[in-house]
């Protein structure tokens, strides 16, 4: 293994690593909020919201994230809306992941006993208040491990930024390997950068899952 590839191109690797983290974190935060909204829509007593939420989840869960990315990068540009690779990729990741997060949170909400909603309502809170103050906090706590899993997927999926010149790790790897005329070592180092992010995350998720299982 040739460590000079890592040291010679450290700047490029670091820039890619930075952009991978930025895209993943921004997408995590925005997909979380989007996911909560969609989850609440899905269980809403209002039929139209219900349909919209279900349609959103089913549609985005069943198409490749790459196509959503192309839509934001090339598709929007063809009607005059400009997003660079990093922004288009991050937006696509947020939307794609939010569909999965919405499902996780919905499952969490369903697992909160029905009696709690009734109790909250009878103590004078409105539906929205009960949802926001009583049900959601509990639901989110339950689904923290599966949110963790989605974050791991996000970090991995962020590699599609490389296809739309999103300046992430994958993209920089291509540039480095074109210049160094080797591929093997270049990509092994890239793999390590990803593992440094994802392995601690998966171990954390394992740990939380165990703790949650014990507390039940």
């Amino acid at each position: 293994m040739d460590f000079s590839i890592l040291t010679d191109n450290f700047g490029l690797y670091l820039e890619g690593f930075k952009n991978t983290i930025i895209a993943s974190v921004i997408a995590l935060v925005s997909s979380f909020f989007l996911g909560v909204i969609v989850a609440v829509m899905r269980i809403s007593p209002v039929k139209v919201l219900n349909w919209l939420g279900t349609g959103y989840v089913e549609f985005f869960r069943n198409i490749p994230v790459l196509i959503i990315t192309f839509f934001f990068y090339f598709g929007l540009a063809s009607i005059g809306i400009e997003l660079d690779g990093l922004k288009a990729g991050t937006t696509a990741l947020s939307i794609y992941t939010s569909a999965f997060i919405a499902e996780a949170i919905r499952a969490g909400i369903m697992s909160v006993p029905k009696g709690q909603m009734e109790a909250a309502r009878s103590s004078g809170l409105s539906y929205n208040q009960s949802m926001r103050l009583i049900i959601l906090p509990q639901a989110i706590k339950i689904v923290i491990p599966s949110l963790g899993n989605q974050f791991i997927n996000l970090v991995k999926n962020s590699s599609i930024l490389g296809v739309v010149a999103g300046l992430d790790l994958m993209y920089q790897a291509d540039l480095i390997s074109a210049r160094a005329f080797v591929t093997f070592d270049v990509y092994l180092f890239v793999a390590m950068f990803y593992l440094v992010l994802t392995i601690p995350l998966s171990l954390g998720v394992h740990y939380l899952e165990k703790r949650l299982a014990r507390s039940h």
Binding site: M170, T183, Y187, I199
Partner: peptide, 23 residues
């Protein structure tokens, strides 16, 4: 298994096609 699960699939595809020929 854990290593593979924690890597992006895109990386694995690249690696299989472009890097494995080097060995």
């Amino acid at each position: 298994v854990e290593t593979i699960r924690n890597l992006p699939l895109l990386l694995i595809i690249f690696f299989t096609y472009f890097a494995l020929p080097e060995i």
